[in-house]
Amino acid sequence: MGRFEPKILAFCCSYCSYAAADLAGAMRLQYPGNIKIIKVPCTGKVDLIHLLLAFEQGADGIMVAGCLEGNCHFLSGNLRARQRVNRVMAILDRIGLEGDRLAMFNLSAGMGARFAEMAREMYAQVLKLGPSPINIARETAARPIVEVAA
């Protein structure tokens, strides 16, 4: 294994964090490039299974970034998202992955600097945790060991 470059996924709400990420770019703020952003209409759209499947497919870390609490465009989508994130963190802890590979953030569309900071935080955290045990297991296995069935 070469130098570890964390694969991080960010589920960003189109009303806040997605715009904040844009703003961070426009402001030319530095944040790690290998954070892949997935735009969602609301973090309430992100379900447990999306997070778990992302880990199955090799994510080393995932961030879910929604609006500030109380400011969800759909009233409680971000609160549901937080609850789901907590549930998945608990699952990860029980199946040999670290719950800390997942994090929920709240911010508004104007917080470009905060987005960059949050991305750096997540990057540092995942760097510290190292590659996901799933990726380690796959690399060490001689043959593919998972056939994700439909």
Binding site: L48, I49, F55, I91, G96, P133, I134, A137, I145, A149
Partner: peptide
């Protein structure tokens, strides 16, 4: 079905990181 999927994915993750072959269908 949702709980089936979550359980399936959790089990796959568990057995993958444990290095054990396991096919799970849902």
């Amino acid at each position: 079905l949702k709980e089936v999927q979550v359980l399936g994915s959790s089990l796959r993750l568990y057995f993958t990181q444990a290095g054990q072959r396991m096919d799970i269908d849902e």
